[in-house]
């Protein structure tokens, strides 16, 4: 038997923090690719500490629903899961190319495939583009559009910004958008000044965050001038300084993130048969249905 564990941050204060993990887990459950799928959290339950013992599978794929590599993926999660043999060097990553490591957990008799976070997987670039398509309701969005990928910034982790630059560069290189920039909440270039960085009149702004919450729903809309008070809401697009800003909310809620989670498990050797293809088709057909609403 093989199990998938999606590990997320969760929150003691914000009940919506765990929603993306639940939603993506449900998509993957429906694919039937794993005998068991379980969500675990740093701030909710089951904790990282106790999730492995809730599983009957001998083989467990752990995918962090985190944006960047660093404190959580390299210290907290392995420590709490008791992956005692884990060494961050095993990922051999410079901050954006963690892959997977196979280790034993100390408290259970299971083989654990510990994967890199969803945020630094290549296919996350596709999710950002998908987000741009859905927020503009235009499957061909790109021409005449700028794209800003928003990150938190420094925090306690230099890799936080690397993940944002990584995807911004990858999407830039596809040539799909006129301009692509990485911007941040608490370091330069700041999201507050987003309109200064683009010539394009239309700018899609996609925050590379896992869940919607304080930052994506309150800070960023106010910082960009979409609204003076987040409680009154804002239009999509909203005109600011002669630009139309198409602001999307956290990319982690995009259904296609379920696909990135599967890609991580697939890279680590999970037996998925055609689950990735089926999940993609399901997401496409769901989005086609909702677009018709």
């Amino acid at each position: 038997m093989q199990a998938l564990v999606i590990v997320g941050h969760g929150s003691h204060l914000n009940p919506g923090s765990s929603d993306p993990a639940f939603t993506h887990a449900d998509t993957i459950r429906a694919s039937g690719a794993f005998d068991e799928v379980r969500e675990a959290f740093w701030k909710e339950e089951p904790s990282f500490r106790e999730v492995l013992r809730t599983l009957e599978s001998e083989e467990v794929f752990v995918v962090p629903l985190f944006i960047s590599e660093g404190y959580f993926t390299e210290q907290v999660i392995p420590r709490e899961l008791r992956l005692n043999e884990w060494d961050p060097e095993d990922w051999d990553s410079d901050g954006t190319d963690a892959d997977h490591v196979t280790v034993q957990a100390k408290d259970v008799d299971k083989t654990v495939h510990y994967c890199g976070p969803v945020g630094t997987h290549d296919s996350m670039s596709d999710v950002i583009v998908e987000r741009a398509k859905s927020i503009t309701d235009d499957p061909d969005v790109g021409e005449g559009f700028g794209l800003a990928v928003v990150g938190h910034g420094t925090e306690r982790n230099e890799n936080s910004a690397k993940a944002i630059h990584y995807h911004a560069d990858r999407i830039h290189d596809t040539g799909r958008f006129e301009e692509v920039k990485a911007v941040f909440m608490d370091e330069d270039p700041e999201v507050d000044d987003v309109t200064e960085f683009f010539d394009a009149e239309d700018i899609v702004v996609v925050p590379l965050f896992v869940a919607d919450g304080f930052h994506t729903q309150e800070d960023i809309p106010e910082d960009m001038g979409l609204t003076d008070d987040y409680r009154t809401g804002y239009d999509v697009p909203t005109e600011v300084d002669g630009h139309r800003i198409w602001y999307s909310g956290a990319v982690g809620t995009e259904p296609l993130v379920a696909d990135v989670i599967l890609e991580r498990a697939d890279d680590a050797g999970a037996d998925l048969a055609d689950a990735i293809e089926r999940v993609r088709q399901q997401i496409e057909s769901d989005s086609a249905t909702s677009a018709g609403d």
Binding site: E45, P46, S47, E50, V51, R53, T54
Partner: peptide, 10 residues
């Protein structure tokens, strides 16, 4: 296990 996570295991 969804109501009281990991309680059965412990």
């Amino acid at each position: 296990d969804y109501v009281y996570p990991a309680t059965v295991s412990n």
